[in-house]
């Protein structure tokens, strides 16, 4: 029983990211309303960001900011290299995902602008009604 529990705790973050990803994908394919599709796209995106951030997590580590700063760069660092590596979370996924979030709001803006333009031209944002109007 205990082994199963440890196995679940070791992997459950991947499963939760998987559930969010599938919710987003399902909404993007099956929802009829275009704004709902955009919300689905954002959920899909944040699931991927969650995956990357959870890769950067290390047990027993702290946030990737040292205490040495404010011009004290030349002071003696009391930690060895191995201690520093084990002591701080991996900063690389954080950097990549930080820019991804800001680019995400850019794509969100473009998507919503397209939705407004579609509403201006067709008078509706329901997919089936738009398809009917295109056929006419």
């Amino acid at each position: 029983m205990n082994e199963i529990l440890t196995a679940i705790i070791a992997k459950y973050n991947y499963w939760s990211f998987l559930i969010l990803l599938l919710i987003g994908l399902h909404a993007m394919i099956s929802k009829n309303n275009l704004v709902k599709k955009v919300i689905g796209m954002s959920i899909f995106q944040s699931a991927i960001i969650l995956f990357y951030v959870s890769i950067g997590y290390k047990k027993g580590a702290t946030i990737p900011i040292t205490e040495h700063g404010h011009g004290h760069a030349n002071e003696v660092v009391h930690q060895t290299a191995a201690e520093m590596v084990a002591g701080f979370a991996n900063p690389l996924p954080h950097v990549l995902m930080l820019t991804a979030i800001v680019v995400g709001v850019g794509t969100l803006g473009v998507a919503l602008a397209l939705v407004q333009k579609i509403h201006r031209v067709y008078g509706t944002i329901e997919e089936d009604e738009i398809l009917e109007k295109i056929k006419e």
Partner: peptide
């Protein structure tokens, strides 16, 4: 390992 020595910035991100 090298951020503080090379750039004197404590926030690695």
């Amino acid at each position: 390992e090298n951020s503080v020595e090379q750039t004197s910035v404590p926030n690695f991100v």
